[in-house]
Design a binder for these strands. Sequence first.
DNA 1: CCTCGATCTGGACTTTGTCTAATTCCCGGA
DNA 2: TCCGGGAATTAGACAAAGTCCAGATCGAGG
Lengths: 139, 139
Amino acid sequence: MAFMHYTRDNMASLLRSHDINPTHQRIEIAYALFSRQEHLSADQVMAIVNTRHSETSKATVYNTLKLFLEKGLVREVIVDPSKVFYDPNTRPHHHLYEVDSGRLSDIDAAHVRISGLPALPEGMVTEGIDLIVRVRRAQ
Amino acid sequence: MAFMHYTRDNMASLLRSHDINPTHQRIEIAYALFSRQEHLSADQVMAIVNTRHSETSKATVYNTLKLFLEKGLVREVIVDPSKVFYDPNTRPHHHLYEVDSGRLSDIDAAHVRISGLPALPEGMVTEGIDLIVRVRRAQ
DNA sequence: CCTCGATCTGGACTTTGTCTAATTCCCGGA
DNA sequence: TCCGGGAATTAGACAAAGTCCAGATCGAGG
Ligand SMILES: [Mn+2]
Ligand SMILES: [Mn+2]
Ligand SMILES: [Zn+2]
Ligand SMILES: [Zn+2]
């Protein structure tokens, strides 16, 4: 389910389509992520959602992001040792990480080919392959 | 500089060869990492170094690991959102991460080929490419 | 043995994330 | 419209990883 425009109304549909009961807080959090299409930390989500006046507690932000993750609505990006980023883009893709600024951007997986990986240990199954290109300003 | 056997004596040489003044604490921390050839968190390093009797403070463990990192003696592996792992293997390699157990093992980069990555943004230079294969027990 | 810069240390502090018990919300039925 | 009750939210205490600092200690070289 992808939208031209992200509205709070179609956030409700999006949540329902992922088997998530749409509440005010969940709609606001989903809207923060999907309308921006950016990688956001829990803190950033909380700041965005509570700009006008405080509406959503820290516990709810964390609980909701975890729920979204379990339901496959967002994915986690682990690239900064101090915080997790949440990613509204769940299509197969990789990441470019600018170490100095902390900026994180997507690399479409369509053209990237990874070959020569060894066979997995017996009884193990791949959950995902994360490729992170760490870059910094030259010199 | 690679050794057949890891002794505290050749840890001192190793440190000097990386422009690090070898002290008791630094030798113990290097020995913990290199004699095991495992990926260890700061907590694990501290526990190993302080088994017999408390010898090294938390501040020194963190400072020393950061120093080793800056001097290129070890590398960081960011794979678990709650802690950083330090890796005595600085040759090009990737990682296999067992999500359930937290076990982390090396994948030699020699046979792995990654192609089709887009050009870097202007004025940026690659610091490294991290490839993490996340696996879990089937079913 | 001294000296003195380098190193180490305890402990306070910060940040990220978790947990819990109490409250609030809200949907469906009467 | 009015409940009842399960689902969701909340404040705030708590935990764990990591940082920081001022004072104590170390040890190489003279
Ligand atoms: Mn966060
Ligand atoms: Mn650690
Ligand atoms: Zn992404
Ligand atoms: Zn490794």
